[in-house]
């Protein structure tokens, strides 16, 4: 009869995503139902009779599952927001701090170029964090198949792709300048290091191609 109870609960939770809360609720319900079943048997009920009574006492679980889904949604959103805020704060902090190596190295060590390289690297890292934060945010999902919903999902998708592409490009070029200056000053091979820019242009083309293909996939 325990198997029948597990089976019943599995069916009941069939359409509920297996979040921590849902799994815990299932365990809680299983335990309580089992105890009720045992009590009914001890009171002299037939097994089938006891099982039916246990199932009947569950009632209408619609509201219960709705509150469960809401709680999960609220919790997820709150966590998402927190993480996103932390990333944005770190990125902004990096942007603000980035002139410090330039100023200190130029003033104290007479090395303005190394300072500039550090500045650009910090800016690139900060941009990278912002891109990651943007890309890891949940996309707009069309809930029903109406035209408005579809259009919203489509425009949210294309806008995201465009913004991500712009961010990647700006990070790519600041990194290129940083690498170019770093290599040129450390090796002194100015006659050849400009190749870095041609290389970066190649990468840029690939990035554009990638985002174009991705955009076509989605539409």
């Amino acid at each position: 009869m325990k198997e029948k109870l597990t089976e019943y609960l599995d069916r009941l939770f069939d359409e509920t995503p297996p979040t921590k809360r849902a799994v815990e609720l299932k365990e809680e319900m299983y335990r309580n139902m089992l105890e009720k079943y045992d009590d009914l048997l001890a009171a002299g009920r037939e097994p089938q009779d006891a099982f039916d009574l246990v199932i009947a006492s569950v009632g209408d679980p619609t509201e219960l599952f709705r509150s469960l889904a809401n709680e999960d949604q609220i919790q997820q959103n709150a966590e998402q927001k927190k993480r996103s805020a932390l990333r944005t704060a770190i990125a902004v902090m990096l942007y603000i701090l980035s002139p410090i190596p330039l100023i200190t190295l130029a003033a104290l060590a007479g090395q303005p170029i190394v300072g500039l390289v550090l500045l650009l690297t910090m800016a690139a890292v900060a941009t990278g964090i912002l891109i990651y934060d943007y890309m890891s945010k949940p996309t707009y999902n069309a809930k029903d198949e109406t035209m408005v919903e579809e259009f919203r999902a489509w425009s949210s998708g294309t806008k995201r792709i465009k913004q991500t592409r712009d961010a990647v490009s700006s990070a790519l070029w600041s990194l290129t300048v940083a690498i170019y200056l770093l290599i040129s000053f450390s090796t002194g091979a100015w006659h050849i290091t400009w190749i870095a820019f041609i290389f970066a242009a190649g990468v840029q083309t690939m990035v554009n191609l990638f985002f174009n293909l991705k955009g076509k996939d989605q539409s």
Binding site: M29, M33, G59, D60, L64
Partner: peptide, 9 residues
């Protein structure tokens, strides 16, 4: 008797 769904809610 309270229905279980009501109780858990």
């Amino acid at each position: 008797e309270l229905k279980e769904a009501t109780l858990y809610t």
